[in-house]
């Protein structure tokens, strides 16, 4: 199962037949495993990693540190939920260290992101403070290096 998931994580377009050959499993085994993983939300969805810079699409990303007061009984979960329901929050993590929630916010302009932080995030009751870091340059995204890497050539014939 894990092997199938790893293959799909690297390339969601790998067909069940290809996966079957690569893993030595039967086609129906692979199909069944994928169906099951899709059914129980092990596979959340299939997406494409896009380098938006290449098409000149302006995107502003910010990593927002959020310090919050945990609430009785629900801890950080309730406030996390308040935050992750906003579509502007691309990712939301509870982290250890000097702040509590790390929120990745994506917008089309700096004003938009700043507005979201100041008008939606910061005023939340249990939020004590926020620190916003705007992303200046992306080097590596989700395991993929964004620049073009030079591949040294191997000797094509070597016994």
């Amino acid at each position: 199962m894990k092997e199938i998931l790893r293959i799909l994580e690297r390339d969601a377009r790998t067909t069940p037949q290809q996966i079957a050959t690569r893993t030595g499993k039967s086609l129906s085994q692979v199909k069944r495993a994928i169906k099951k993983a899709e059914g129980d939300r092990t596979i959340l969805k299939y997406k494409t990693v896009i380098n938006w810079d290449r098409v000149g699409e302006e995107q502003v990303w910010a990593l927002v540190e959020v310090k919050v007061v945990p609430q009785r009984d629900v801890g950080f979960d309730a406030i996390a939920e308040r935050i992750y329901r906003f579509p502007e929050a691309r990712s939301v993590y509870l982290v250890s260290g000097t702040y509590d929630l790390a929120v990745l916010v994506v917008g089309s302009t700096m004003q938009e992101v700043a507005g979201f932080v100041s008008q939606k995030l910061a005023p939340l009751e249990s939020v004590q403070g926020t620190v916003t870091h705007f992303l200046l340059k992306r080097y590596k995204e989700d395991g993929e290096i964004l620049g073009v890497e030079e591949r040294p050539k191997r000797v094509p014939l070597m016994p």
Partner: peptide
């Protein structure tokens, strides 16, 4: 090989 282009090599003897 030196004079050809577009060759796919399965003739290597080392990791890629």
């Amino acid at each position: 090989l030196a004079s050809m282009e577009g060759v796919i090599s399965l003739g290597v003897g080392e990791p890629d």
